[in-house]
Amino acid sequence: MKKKIWAHLLRNSSIILLIVIVIVASLNANDPVENFFTVMMSQAPFMLVYCLGMTLAIIRGGLDLSIGSVAAFSSYIGALLIIEGYIVPGIITAIAIGAAIGLFNGVLISKINVHPFIATCGTNWVVRGLVLFILAGKKIFGFPEGFKLISTGSIVRFSNTMKISNPFVISIVIFLIVLFVLRKTVLGRQIYSVGANPDATRITGVDTAIVTTIVYIMSGMLAAIAGILYAAVLDCAEPTIGYEYGLMSIAATLIGGTPLSGGKGGVANTVVGVLIIVFLNNALAVLGISHLWQQAVFGIIIIFAALINRIKERQLMLLEMY
């Protein structure tokens, strides 16, 4: 019995961490409820979208560091069309670019056997270089109203004051789609099994290269969507979009409890991870700590999350043996 409680505590440790953080945060803030919602509404949606891609890649047993530059590149190309009034083609183009870069990553990793880290890091470098080269420091702004509605409008409204912003709705919908794919489809099951044991999965007749490629295509598309959302909110496409995406999404995924070893965890964990990261980010601001601390803090978070995940896995294994 005691063991069962322990196992539950361990398995849900990230949720517990989130609850503790929320409590501490609301004790300190002046108007905890409103604060909680404003932060969540404004920051969590984009972050969740690109973290979903990273989570997919980590479940498959790799990771995707190119998401930041993919977001910047695809949103910029999309913005070129959108500013001319072609809103839907622009969005589709952006997503297609994300998919194409994802395809490139997937082929590098599954067919040529380049380590996912070095492959996506290299792609990141090149794509970021392209962004800097093509944009040359310029910003694109002044999008048509229809496009800005993505960020300012709200499809779901209960009353004039009680409404849920569009980015929030979009990110929830995307989250549910990814959750559905992972939990309820054959493809999702295959992503998990390739991550857990690629050899055994190949023996069952699954083309592991295709599964891997699909994962990176999805990750690229999600990064592109995050980029578009971001551009819509800022009303601006700029070359610096997404610099911190890789770092943040690894931190959020790991702290949510999806281990680097692959085949475990899930996107629901990542939601918890994203909320924790958003709160920490916010806490840094509230406590008056400069945003310059961000990188250092998240580096430490990744190290600790990786260490804790390993200890957790080991303990859970011991507990579940009986």
């Binding site: 990771l63 560091l65 380590h115 880290f117 070095i118 770092l247 690894i250 680097l260 990188q295 250092a296 998240f298 580096g299 430490i300 990744i302 190290i303 990786a306």
Partner: peptide
């Protein structure tokens, strides 16, 4: 990979 990536951003 991930460890030294984390120390990269730490540094």
């Amino acid at each position: 990979w991930v460890t030294t990536f984390a120390t990269l951003s730490l540094g």
